[in-house]
Structure formats: structure tokens, C-alpha cells
Design a protein around this nucleic acid. Structure first.
Lengths: 165, 165
DNA sequence: GCTTGACCTCAAGTTAACTTGAAGATGTAG
DNA sequence: CTACATCTTCAAGTTAACTTGAGGTCAAGC
């Protein structure tokens, strides 16, 4: 992917600037600033105005991506890091989130089955299909509810990034 | 609260007003107005300023709830209704959404397994656990991504509603 | 020394799905 | 007829996680 050239470009390899971090992580610079602002990552210093990071930031970003994919909010993710930069994840929190995912998955599974049925059901209208009506009744009774918040991806930051913005 | 007398109370039973619809459906009046504004439901007329609905609105609301629970956006849900008020759901759309749910579930399953492992893993730090590092690598590579948008529930509208707001 | 392009800050905008609030209208009980 | 609880409209606020834009700074190349 990147030609390992002999000549090191401007920012010292071991102190990547924000553009370098963005390039290598796929996380936009604006997001990196945003994360820093939120205390999720930290720059190790500045060259003039410009932030310099160290290599640890990549692991940190991976951790954040992983946590986000698991459904943690940025705020929750913030609690996973000690002030000293060390990672200290509460195991109970992990279990709780796993339980949450299980619940979500059960809900989604039910919905998916309903959708699959509705997609092939031969009833003239969905409203006349008993399976569908059962689901509807659940929705009416409030047993069926919409999902939790989350995040949007829309076009995948990596994709947009790699497309040259 | 309201005695079921022989005399029909204010809103004719078969033309519930917005408060009645809210009460029976659990959907807040503000949401009903919002949905009407978006064209997802329709009031059948007015008594003075006040909207009157007919019984069909309950099915409609159940349908909306169901679709929302399946991950459809309100905009997508809008396409499920013809102008004449008839329901006409594109079966291909249902399949597509089912596929989407499957994808989501695969992702969530992987995350859940990772979380469960991390919760019990004996490695001194998560960063030293090979399983965890494998996930991290996935996150770094961008194969692991955050979920789709969705909706929030926070306290369940029904609960808040029934708690007398 | 000057130009330039990348970076900086800070405020405001974006999206989805609603909620909240202000100001006004009205059917209904008394 | 007067109160008043409910309704009405319309604009603006909310949340999460970012993005965008304006206006400014600065290191490096020429």
C-alpha cells in the first residue's frame, strides 16, 4: 500500500502529524480533533500549531472503533481509559453490553424472520397474512420496539477518505 | 376515569380524537402530529380545530412501529403507503431489509463473542489477550465498523405516557 | 522574504425522530 | 357567559457523532 521509501517524509515517522494519522487509520482529521477534544485520544505535543501524535494512537483508535462497533457510545468509551492513558475496561460493563447485544439480536432475529415471511407470503395483502398480523399485534401492544441509538456510516469513512475526500 | 355511559362521550368512539389515539396506541400526541405532518398517518377530519381519526389509524400505527422495529426509516415507511391510504409494501424491499438485518446480526454476534471473551479473559490487560488483539486488528483494518443509525427508546414512550407524563 | 498549502480554532450545520414551548383558538362544564 | 382544560400551529430545541466553513497561523520551499 505505502511504498516503504528510504527517505522519511516531513513528519518524523515516530511522531505522525494529524494527516499521517488520518491516512494510516482512515479516521478523518476532523474526527481526530473531535476525539482529542473529547479526551479520547491525546496528541503528544505540537510542532508549531500542529499536533504530533505517537504510534500508540493507532491502537487507541482501533480500540475506539471496536468499542463503537460493539455499540458503546463515545462517552462510555471515555470511561475505558484512565487519565494516565492506560486502558482499564470494566469487565462488568463488557458483560452488560454483551447482554444488550443479545437482546438486540433476539429482536432483530424476530424482525428478520417476519420480513422474510412477509416477502414471500402469498396473501393478497400483508394485512391478511396471519403471521404478519401477529407481528402487527405485537407492535400494537408495544412488545415490539425500535432499536437503540447507534451510529451512522452512510458511505464508510475509509471509502470517502480513499476516494480523495 | 371515564364512565362508560350510554351517552357517547365527547369524541365519538369511532372517531377518536388525538388524545384518545395517543392513549390507546401509546404514541404521544406530538408524535401523531409529527407523523401526520410527514404523511404517515392522516386524520379524517376536524371538529373545530381538533383532529379526528378513524379506527384504521391504529393499524397504521402498528405498522409503523413494526417497520421502525425492523430498522426502516420513517421515509422508507412513507413509501409503503399509497396515496389512497392503501398499504403496498415492496417485497424486494422486505428482503433487502432482512438481508441488512442478517448482516447487522453477524456483526453483532462477532462483537458479542468478543465482549464475552474479554469479560472473562485472564490476560492482565485486554491488550495482551490474543483474541482481543485479533478484534482490534479487525477494527484497525476497518473490517469492523459501527452500526447503522436507528432510534432511541430511553424510557419507552408507553412507560412515560402511563406514568402520567 | 514571500508564497503556499496544510494545519489551527471555534462556531455552526447535519441527520433522524421527536419533544418542548409560546401564543392562540375552542368545545364544554357550570 | 365565563372558565378552562385541550386542543391548535409553528418554531426551536434535543442527542450523538461528526462535518463544514470562516478566518487565522505557520513551516518550508523557492
Amino acid at each position: 500500500m505505502r511504498l516503504a521509501g528510504a527517505a522519511m517524509p516531513k513528519p518524523a515517522m515516530n511522531f505522525p502529524d494529524i494527516a499521517e494519522v488520518a491516512r494510516r487509520s482512515g479516521v478523518p482529521a476532523s474526527t481526530l480533533r473531535f476525539y482529542e477534544d473529547k479526551g479520547l485520544i491525546a496528541s503528544t505535543g505540537r510542532r508549531g500549531l500542529r499536533r504530533l501524535f505517537d504510534a500508540a494512537v493507532f491502537e487507541r483508535l482501533a480500540l475506539i472503533a471496536l468499542a463503537r462497533a460493539s455499540g458503546f457510545t463515545l462517552e462510555e468509551i471515555g470511561t475505558m481509559f484512565c487519565a494516565d492513558g492506560r486502558v482499564a475496561i470494566d469487565r462488568a460493563m463488557l458483560s452488560a453490553k454483551a447482554d444488550e447485544l443479545d437482546k438486540t439480536m433476539r429482536r432483530l432475529r424476530a424482525m428478520r424472520d417476519g420480513l422474510r415471511h412477509a416477502a414471500v407470503c402469498r396473501a393478497p395483502s400483508h394485512l391478511e397474512c396471519p403471521t404478519f398480523r401477529k407481528l402487527l399485534a405485537g407492535a400494537a401492544a408495544g412488545t415490539i420496539r425500535a432499536p437503540e441509538p447507534a451510529v451512522k456510516a452512510k458511505k464508510s469513512r475509509k471509502a470517502r477518505h480513499e476516494a480523495g475526500r
